[in-house]
Write a protein that binds this DNA or RNA. Sequence first.
DNA 1: AAATGTGAAGCGATTCACAGCC
DNA 2: GGCTGTGAATCGCTTCACATTT
Lengths: 227, 227
Amino acid sequence: MSQEGLSPATASRLPIYARGLRELAQGGVQFVSSKSLAETTGLEAHLIRKDLSRLGTLGKRGVGYQVTELLSELTEFLRLFRTWRVAIAGCGRLGLALASYLPLAGRNFRLVAAFDCSARKIGTKAAGIEILPWTRMPAVLRERAVDMVIIATPPLAAQSVADLAVEGGTTLILNYAPTSLTVPEGVVVRNVDLADEMQALTLRITGRPVLRTRRLASPAIPWITQQ
Amino acid sequence: MSQEGLSPATASRLPIYARGLRELAQGGVQFVSSKSLAETTGLEAHLIRKDLSRLGTLGKRGVGYQVTELLSELTEFLRLFRTWRVAIAGCGRLGLALASYLPLAGRNFRLVAAFDCSARKIGTKAAGIEILPWTRMPAVLRERAVDMVIIATPPLAAQSVADLAVEGGTTLILNYAPTSLTVPEGVVVRNVDLADEMQALTLRITGRPVLRTRRLASPAIPWITQQ
DNA sequence: AAATGTGAAGCGATTCACAGCC
DNA sequence: GGCTGTGAATCGCTTCACATTT
């Protein structure tokens, strides 16, 4: 099973397959076909076969995939056997929610540090971890060998926090603040904005129906194609 | 100005451009080139020009785009002038965090209902809205003309909640529970799993040769490697 | 008969290159 | 000279069709 040339699109679906398989395994299912995995994951059977075939020959023709075996292949590939050490910067409602979600995620993510700028929060705990002042970030990130920093601060603080994270040697940043970050080459940032998700959803229905009621003065607004 | 559909890929980037422009406008910038907008958003200048040109002729050759004008075009297109009525199902830490984030999102999303199954929570408030028992969902969703339901429950409850949402006439569901939902034709679901996001990030460094990081921010559509 | 694995076709999105305008 | 707007080329992903295996 090789990782060479695995496409981003395929890679991004593997966690979804893994989750589906975990559910099936818990339900005691032993074999699954691409068709029934398609039903539990909401993806296309064709696509699942193609994706899985790229990891190697994992199924039995005429039979399907053995659930636990396939799951362990995916686990292997996704590095789920390894523990990822995570820090959270910003312990507001969202930060705390993320902190408490980490151990439940079913993946090996472990919260090892938490930071906030508010004096009121310092010394209290987030999911069992003491909250430290953000000024200590660079040093603590190194001491605790943090792999990934999750930014859950207000937008204005996000860039400074990202700078501190980079200073602490972090190369993976998951940014929940609604702002674009600038980081040096080699640091990977992924932005997740709640409002963008909501916006994307609304665009799936806004298009056609509302369109014609718009005023004449402005040119016709193009609508979104439904996938 | 084209009459045909705007592609989903383009549509999903418009909110990002809008956010970038809002930042620029606040900073007092009057004109912006595709190149500098590329820097603030982390996307490619080529792509920005292509996307924007699909909405119409919005820029001036040799000059760039007028920030406020372009922003108002995007606002128009994204229907940001309209208020979206949102309900949250599941008022745990994540639900409450999302509730309090809504008004800050800078888009017109308004929380109009909140539900939970825990007797302890019923009657308390989430961002100023009284929390109701989930059994009342279908009726209340209709009464309050809810456009979108955000599911922030534990995974096991998510499907039942989705069923109630559909029963209440909802066609847009944003699902934060780490489970795949089954919904009837015509209902649009978007799954956002926090652990998947983290997983996606880790994949960007686990595969051996660290992939070249050309961009500063993540691509609009979330993918792992860049080729 | 049933279901995988895979080349090839089809399709959509991105990048390129340059024409057109300021 | 600078920058947008856009057809054409390219690239990558998905879908299809079917050969292959159990």
